[in-house]
């Protein structure tokens, strides 16, 4: 058994700077859920096969269960809790509610963050683009139909908001 030295990390989580000494045998998902109390990031499989733990690292969706904790160092991380201020809903969240894209809710945070990354680089994705973007996020409840519809609705909402500014 090796005695592990804590590894010092500085990263930005949901806009706030986080400085921690982390045990390298932990994963990003453990730090988020256990140390930072960000339980919106869910663990569904622990091996990158379900996408429930999707977070954005430097704007890209990544499975938090596949990232060693020290790899957070120097990165900017967004979790579902950081998508909007406490009492607001992001247009993607509104769209998920309106389109009926939420059932059990366990895939929802990861799905919404994946959608956010997609819409950040493609403001008007077609169905194929949406399905491709969420092809690493498993949902066992919805058949994806209303999730795809919600993401396209969110694109329209964002475009309308853009237009009104």
């Amino acid at each position: 058994m090796v005695e592990m030295k804590p590894f010092k990390i500085i990263s930005k989580v949901n806009g706030s700077t986080v400085e921690l000494g982390v045990n390298p045998g932990r994963r990003l998902i453990d730090i988020l859920r256990e140390d930072l109390g960000l339980t919106g990031t869910k663990e569904g499989c622990g091996e990158g096969e379900c996408g429930a733990c999707t977070v954005l690292i430097n704007g890209r969706p990544v499975n938090a269960c596949l990232v060693l904790a020290p790899e957070m160092n120097g990165k900017e991380i967004i979790t579902i809790e950081g998508l909007t201020p406490e009492d607001e809903l992001h247009p993607i969240q509104e769209a998920f509610l309106e389109a009926g894209a939420v059932q059990c809710g366990f895939c929802t945070p990861g799905m919404i963050l994946t959608a956010k990354a997609l819409l950040d680089k493609n403001s008007d994705p077609d169905e194929k683009a949406v399905k491709t973007a969420i092809s690493g996020n498993l949902c066992r409840c919805t058949g994806y139909v209303k999730i795809v519809a919600a993401i396209r609705l969110a694109a329209a909402k964002l475009a309308a908001r853009e237009g009104s500014i």
């Binding site: 339980t39 919106g40 809790e81 969240q93 998920f96 509610l97 939420v102 809710g105 929802t108």
Partner: peptide
């Protein structure tokens, strides 16, 4: 709309884990 919808999209719903 679902009564539990807002907390689910916000990631605030506390599942057993």
């Amino acid at each position: 709309p679902r009564v539990d919808g807002v907390s689910k999209v916000k990631g605030k719903t506390l599942f057993a884990a």
